[in-house]
Structure formats: structure tokens, C-alpha cells
Simulated scan of single mutants.
Amino acid sequence: MTKENNLTINGSGSYPGGEYDKISIRGDGTIVNDVECSIFHVYGTSEAVENVKAGSIKVFGEAEVKGNLQAEKMLIMGTMEVGGRASLKNIKILGTLEVGEDLTGDEANIKGTISVKGDVEYETFESTGGFEIKGLLNADKIMVSLRFGESSAEEIGGGVIHVKKKSSFVPFVKDTGTLTAKVIEGDDIYLENTKADIVRGKIVKIGTGCQIGSVEYTTELMHDPGSTIKTKTKL
């Protein structure tokens, strides 16, 4: 693509879709058709009426894609809303991401918050922020550090699932981060501050602050005396 394929929006208006090299939105821009580009940067307010496919996306302001979104790399410092599916290979969320259907990719690093109405599937999922997942969170490696608020997923599945509370840097502030799920299933599970109906795994370690309905394990179960487990079953 040549330089003439760049789209820069400094004011306000609607623009056609198509193929571009770089799209930079500093004002208030609407893209009315499917768009494909190498770089998509939003410093102001952006709305894409249909689908977006990009190599690299950075959102410092507010962006909305009403259709599906596909990207190799994404950094969100502001807010991003996707109406359909989001296929985002490598994401770093420092702001807010909302997805209307499924979210998939390779590596997810959540320092802000995500809200997903479908399933979330990654190879590695790391969160030190918060998440609300209406469907299944599935990843080979799930590392969650609970700092604030309530994170939740309908079900959580993976190889390694480690959930730990993170100490607050602010004095006199009580750690309030919690995780809630109906089912948590994996090979190597360690949980703190977690509420779950069923926990199922090979090696299961229940740390502090947990309320578990039943634990089913095949190899090993460790249980902090301060947490509650209603039933324990070795398979």
C-alpha cells in the first residue's frame, strides 16, 4: 500500500471503508463499510459500522466496532466495544474492553477490565484487573491476581489455573477481590478468594477465602482450614 492509502481524521465525519495502510482518528470519525488496515490508532472517538481487520490496534480514546473485529496486536488504554466476535491474537488491556460474542486469541494480559457475553479462549490468560465472562473461560495457562471487585465466569477450564489475592498498596484498604464461577476444571488448580459450585482437577489446592461446593480430584487435595468445601471426592 502507498502513503495515499492512509486515512487521518482530525475533525468529524463519515468515511468509506476499504483497504488502508494506517488509520489515525484524532477527532470523531465513523467508518461506514468493512475496513482492513495495517495500523489503526484511535485518539478521539471512532465508530466502525461493520467489520474491522487490522494488524495493530491502539485505542487511547473511545472506539466501537458494531460488527466483528480481527487483529494481530491490540493495546487498549481507553475503551473499546465490539458488537460481534473479537479475534485478537495478542491483547493488553489497561482500559476497558466489551465484546458482544466470543473473544479468542493467543495471549491476553488484562490490567483493566473486560466484559464478554460469549466464551473466551486463549493459550495464556493473565489478569490483574477484572473480568466478567458470561460463557466459558478456557486457556492452557490461567493466572489471575485479584485486586478489586468481583471477577466472574460461567465456567473456567485449563491446564494450569492459579487464582491468588493481591495485597493492596493502599494502607487500611481491605482486599475485596473475588472470583465466582459455577465450574472450575483443570490439571493443576490453586485458588484463593474463590466461590465455585464444582472444582475438578488432578492436583487441587484450596487456599484462603474460598467457598467451594464440591471438589473432585484424582491425585492430590490440599485445603486451607479457613476455607469451606462441602464435599470432597477422590476419583
Rank of each mutant, 00 (worst) to 15 (best):
N5G: 11
N6Q: 08
N10L: 15
G13W: 06
Y15T: 09
G17Y: 11
Y20K: 08
D21V: 15
D21E: 13
I23A: 02
I23G: 03
R26C: 13
R26L: 13
D28T: 15
D28P: 08
N33K: 10
F40I: 06
F40K: 01
H41M: 09
Y43E: 07
Y43T: 11
G44L: 12
G44R: 00
T45H: 10
S46Y: 11
E47I: 12
V49W: 12
K53C: 08
A54Y: 02
A54G: 09
S56M: 08
A71R: 00
L75S: 10
L75R: 12
M80N: 04
E81C: 11
G83E: 03
L88R: 01
I91H: 01
I91T: 10
D102Q: 05
D102M: 05
L103E: 01
D106T: 14
E107Q: 11
I110A: 13
K111N: 11
G112H: 05
G118F: 03
V120D: 00
E123L: 15
T124I: 12
G129T: 09
K134R: 13
R147F: 09
F148G: 13
G157P: 10
K166L: 10
S168W: 03
F172R: 03
V173W: 07
T176M: 09
T180M: 04
A181T: 08
K182L: 15
E185D: 12
E185C: 10
G186K: 01
L191C: 06
N193M: 10
V199H: 00
G201D: 04
K202Q: 12
K202I: 15
K202W: 07
V204G: 03
G207H: 09
T208W: 05
Q211C: 05
S214Q: 15
V215S: 00
Y217T: 02
Y217G: 04
T219P: 12
T219K: 14
H223S: 05
G226S: 02
G226D: 02
S227P: 07
K232N: 08
